[in-house]
Design a binder for these strands. Sequence first.
DNA 1: CCGGCGAATAACGTATACACTATTCATGGC
DNA 2: GCCATGAATAGTGTATACGTTATTCGCCGG
Lengths: 247, 247
Amino acid sequence: MASPRSGATRPGDRRARSRPSLQGIADLPARDRAYHDLRYRILTGRLAPGTTLLETELAALLSLSRTPVREATIRLAEEGLIAIRPRHGITVRSLTLNDVRDILDVLSALEIRAVELVARRGLARADHDRLLHLMDRMERATEAGDIAQWSEMDDDFHSTVAGLCGNDRLLSTLDEYWSQQYRPRMMIVPLRPKPTQSNIEHRRIVEALAAGDVEAARLAQQQHRARADRQQLDLLRDRLADGADRA
Amino acid sequence: MASPRSGATRPGDRRARSRPSLQGIADLPARDRAYHDLRYRILTGRLAPGTTLLETELAALLSLSRTPVREATIRLAEEGLIAIRPRHGITVRSLTLNDVRDILDVLSALEIRAVELVARRGLARADHDRLLHLMDRMERATEAGDIAQWSEMDDDFHSTVAGLCGNDRLLSTLDEYWSQQYRPRMMIVPLRPKPTQSNIEHRRIVEALAAGDVEAARLAQQQHRARADRQQLDLLRDRLADGADRA
DNA sequence: CCGGCGAATAACGTATACACTATTCATGGC
DNA sequence: GCCATGAATAGTGTATACGTTATTCGCCGG
C-alpha cells in the first residue's frame, strides 16, 4: 500500500478492508509474516478472543525468535487487535458492545469522509459500472436469501467506494478500524434479515456519487451507516445476550 | 491514556492534541523514552524534515541500543512522522501540500464526529464554563493581536471539546493525525490574520453543544473546519512558495 | 485458617552478536 | 569515457544472551 505506514500491509493492495488472507506474504520479512499470520489467525477466529500467550509461546507458535514477534505484536496492539500486558501475556482483545460502538463511530466517520471525497473527485465510468454490477449481484443474492455472500459483496462495495477517495492515509486508518470490527461483524451474519434497505441505500449513494453531489452523498452514506450500525449493534446485543458479554 | 494502544503515550493524559512535551517520561521504558524523545524532536523541529539517520546513529543519539530505538521508530513510522527505508536510513517525513490536505481531511472528519458525540452526551456545567472562559481569553488575545497565544488556546479549545467525546479510540487516532499536522500548523502561525471568524464559529459550536443539538453541532464544526482548513492550506501554499515545496 | 513476608523463578526489556544482502566502489572491458 | 560486473562493506533483520523485576509460591506467624 502506498500509505504512510512502513510495514507492508499487502503488496499492491490499494483497497481498504482487505479480507483476511495470507496470499503473497511468503517472502516478506519475518516481522511482517508474523504480523500477517497473527492478524489472520485473530480475524478468522483461529486465535479466539481472550486467548493469552506469552512472547515465548507466540515465538514458538510461529517458529521465530522473540524479536520479530515483538515487533509484530507492538503493531497489532497499536491497531487494537491485541493487548500486551507485560508478564501477564499477550491477549487477543475481546470487545464489549461499547467497544464495537466506539469502533463503528470512528469507522463511519471515516467512511462518510471517504464518500464525500469520491463525490468531489467524480466517478469514472468504469468504476460506476463496477458498482452498478456489484449492486445487481447484491440484489440477486438478497432475493436468493444468500446473506453470507451478500455480506461479502457489501464489504466489497464499501471497500471499492472508499478505495476511490484518493487519500491513502484515510484508507489506512479505515482498514485499521475495519479490522477491529471484522469479527463482531462476522458473528452476526447468520442473524441478519434480508438487507433490502441497504440495497436501496447503496443505490442512493452511488447516484449521488455519479452526480458528483457531495452533500447528497454525505447524507446518503451517513444515513446508511447510522441505520446499518444501529442494526449491527442490536443484532450483536441479541447475540451476546446468550453467552458471554464480549465478542 | 486508557486507549486501545499499548505503548503508554503520556501517563494520565486523557486529551488528544498533547502539546509536544517530555514531562514525566523519565522512568518509562527505554522504548517509550525513545518514542517520546524522537516525537518531541520532530514536532519541535529539532529534527528537521528530511533529516536522515541510520538506526545505529539514532541509537547513539539517544544513548540506547538498536532494539528499543527500532521499536520506537516502527511506531513513529506507523504514525506517519518518519519513513523507514532499509539501508537508506530513517527520514523525518516532510509533507507536501497534498499530504497536509489529506491529513486535514481525516482530522476534520474525526473532529466532526467527536463534536457530534459531545453534543449527544451533553455538556456538563463545569465543561461549559471552561469553554466559555477559554473563548473569552481567545477573544482578548485576538484583540491584543497575540496570534501565537490564540493559536495555543485554539488547540486547547478543540482538544478540550474532543476530550469530552467519550471515545478513547477516536481520541487516539485524532492525536495521531494532530501530530502529523502540527509542524505545518506551527509554520503558518506568523502569517495568520486576526481569527475573528474562528472566534465567532467557536461560539456557535459551543452553543450547539450546550443545547445538545447534534445536527447543529455537526454543521457548525464542519463549517468551521472547512473554512479553517482552507485558510491553513492557503497560508501554507504562500509559505511554501518562497522556499522548498515541502514542509 | 488466613494473611503477609520473602525467596525462587520466569518473563520481559535491552543489549549484543551474527549472518545476509543491498549498495557502493573499483576495476576492467567495450 | 562510460557502462557493466564483481568484490568489499556496512546496515539491517533476526537470534540470542543477560540482567532486572514482577509475580508466584511457600513458609511462618498471627
